[in-house]
Design a protein around this nucleic acid. Structure first.
Lengths: 125, 125
DNA sequence: TTCGTAGTTCGCCGAGCGTCGTACTTCGAT
DNA sequence: ATCGAAGTACGACGCTCGGCGAACTACGAA
């Protein structure tokens, strides 16, 4: 094997193939948004296990796959771990400014509502 | 009835109750994104029937409801029609810059891909 | 080599979404 | 009062999604 086993990028869309609706859908899930927020918070590349997510391993794999197939993150292997990186530059080119605004809004909302209620809209219905 | 029948706003979340994930989810659907784009394209208030959407009346009602309950649009009656308006200012306060970036990205993508394939990722799988 | 850790894959389940058709309501016009 | 046009409400359908557990793979360490 002439390939280096420590850098095997998993299949992902090219920058030009990143679709707006796919990105929006990927970011619309609370768990995935939490992953993206943690990735953006300085830790540029983290193993999946490092994220303290309220779901099981297989569900975690699922969410990372959705993010990767939407073009939001890049994944490659490092030893027995899977390292994830935000595709900041690619996203900036495909959907300029979107990631920053989403992250800023998520931060603001997190400060207002420390715990995220499932889906209650108190002032409506 | 002392209420004026020509301005009956339908139930909608207050500005502070607009949730990021709800907005992202509302904008993640191609039909709803098309509605928002048409609303942003100058026609500030349009009747539902004025949108040439590839779905039936009842589905149209459903999509307008999702957009309204997410806080993206406001709806009120005018005669036998339903007039919809983008809540631009409220969105700017709740999720600053998000709407503009989504609209810009949608415009760019529409120029690249005139017709939107269902969900094919040609360079992947 | 054996073992443990980290992820993946698969099938399954329940819930929700998008879609439709069919009533039903509401309003303006006749 | 009657009719038609614009929307809404409701139920049904198929599909997707998010969640899980169990079995499997891949890699490092002992």
């Amino acid at each position: 094997m002439t390939e280096s086993a420590t850098s095997t990028p998993l299949p992902e869309p090219a920058t030009g193939e990143i679709r707006l609706t796919a990105v929006l859908h990927a970011l619309a899930d609370p768990v995935r948004l939490q992953i993206v927020r943690q990735l953006a918070e300085g830790h540029e590349d983290m193993a999946c296990i490092a994220f303290s997510l309220p779901v099981t391993k297989s569900t975690t794999t699922h969410h990372f796959r959705v993010l990767r197939e939407a073009g939001v993150i890049r994944q490659h292997r490092r030893g027995t771990s899977r390292v994830s990186t935000l595709r900041t530059a690619d996203l900036e080119q495909a959907v300029p400014g979107l990631l920053d605004r989403v992250l800023a809004a998520a931060q603001t909302e997190a400060l207002r509502h420390p715990v995220d209620p499932p889906s209650d809209a108190p002032t409506m219905e």
